[in-house]
Write a protein that binds this DNA or RNA. Structure first.
Lengths: 290, 290
DNA sequence: GTTCCGCATGAATCGATAG
DNA sequence: ACTATCGATTCATGCGGAA
């Protein structure tokens, strides 16, 4: 079906330079947070975080199409009893790079990390920052419409009851039309708060976000055959979901273990592998081992 | 019972100067947002917002006790297709004034304002920024504990059944202790996401928050007889709730209409009124007209 | 085939202890 | 003094095995 997946092994700051400018429709990524994942990624100091990220966001700006969108999943940690400011400083600096800070979605985590402290509660949300190169960007709102809440469902039920009896007396005329009307009426546009659980069964990666998350943004901001990029691929959730949804995808990952793990999970597709020696490997047909 | 309510009519930047330093335990307020409510407050331009707010926050810093907390309910508006940055700039500037940015709570609005735009969804959340003067502050976490999730309802039921039969056989000894243990176990500490409905019946004020909101923070950060301040009192939700909860309260409001409206809604209490002529009016006993 | 229960496991945070 | 490590605390979720 002509959908390709490219996997790069290496530091995304360098690997991104190999991508053509204005070639990506959607970037969804969750970079390592400051001082996290020390054992695997080395952990970036909170004070150095902005400085570390800006060269990456500059490359992302280059490769993103003018109609494309960049979704950045991030959350500041507590440092010395206070929320660190590197995320909000990053927003200000990225705007200087030319990014528009279009929106801030909230990921309200159903199952947040437990714990008790004298001066704060559990942290149950993360930021999903939406950046764009242009004020006009592609968006397909109908693709993520959700069933209406219960308050409408009960009301709809009553209404359709009366509607049904009326239709019966009218011997079915217009029945189908009414039904289809109710179907469209029973769906609503979502808000900028996503209420999802974290993936807690993925043993291979310490910090995967749920598949629903990239899926939601891929539906919202891309069409089939579009290209989705995740420069901090990790266990590959974004790439795998994009592939399944008929989008071309590009994943970049620093650690060989994750890089190889993602290969094995991909559905049958054209797979291009770019490894540290920078040579292009022949396309392989992979068959998913599920 | 010795609970007093002070109402000031005037610009809070000036009126705050009349309050003693280190005299307030909790500040909960929702200032006018940039370019909002033009008809009433004249609307502060987004570009001027930080500059406009900093003198107020400086006074708030002065009047707040070292053990006290400042909760700022705010949300940046969309300017020219992009989220404005005045809120995050304000956080950075307030830290320079000496404030600690302890936490950012999210108010997830159950029933947010309807609407549809081509490039964004409905905004269903607002920031509740927590600032402190000191890293040690008063907090009464047990006051806001919530029932545990549904998963306990099935499992805990079975456990408490066996516990109950055992206690019956033991003829009451230790019965109360066991039960109270399960009761505490059936409650959990909340998270930093508050899921509350918006006030549907906004009578006159265009941006009231629900009573649960100040109530939650008053329970969490104050005891009885403590003092709660709202420098942008508006329709007086914070002051009225504080009064009802047995806390001293101070409200400052620029507009005479709101100022007078709040007076009428207060429960019987010592009420001190400070009007534009700066004279202290005799304490009045008010009786609520509900 | 369901439903139910036991259990491990998290992008956490604080305070104390150790180098 | 300043940083690194460790234990304690805490709770929603989904998996796997059992009834």
């Amino acid at each position: 079906m002509g959908i390709s997946t490219q996997l790069y092994l290496g530091d995304c700051k360098e690997e991104l330079k190999k991508l053509a400018e204005n070639s990506v429709d959607l970037i969804v990524t969750s970079p390592p947070y400051a001082d996290q994942r020390k054992s695997t990624y080395g952990g970036i100091r909170a004070e150095k975080y902005v400085e570390w990220f800006l060269p990456v966001s500059a490359e992302l700006f280059r490769v993103l199409k003018p109609t494309g969108t960049f979704i950045l999943n991030i959350k500041e940690k507590v440092v010395d009893g206070e929320r660190s400011t590197y995320v909000i400083e990053l927003i200000l600096e990225m705007r200087k790079q030319g990014w528009f800070w279009t929106e801030e979605f909230i990921w309200h985590k159903k199952n947040c990390y437990p714990g008790k402290w004298p001066n704060r509660f559990r942290d149950a949300w993360e930021r999903l920052l939406q950046f764009n190169k242009d004020k006009k960007f592609k968006m397909f709102q109908e693709e993520v419409m959700v069933p209406m809440g219960n308050w409408t469902r009960t009301r709809l039920k009553n209404l359709s009851e009366t509607d049904k009896t009326r239709d019966v007396s009218k011997v079915g005329s217009g029945f189908g039309k009414n039904i289809s009307n109710w179907v469209t009426r029973s769906k609503a546009y979502p808000t900028n708060v996503l209420h999802l659980a974290t993936e807690c069964n993925n043993k291979n990666h310490s910090a995967t976000f749920p598949e629903e998350l990239p899926e939601w943004f891929i539906k919202l901001f891309t069409e089939e055959k579009d290209t989705v990029l995740d420069p901090f691929s990790g266990s590959g959730t974004t790439v795998i979901v994009a592939n399944r949804m008929g989008r071309n995808s590009i994943g970049i990952e620093l650690l060989p273990d994750y890089y190889q793990m993602v290969q094995k999970q991909l559905e049958p597709a054209e797979l291009y592998l770019f490894e540290t020696n920078n040579e292009k490997i022949e396309p392989k047909k992979r068959y998913a081992v599920r």
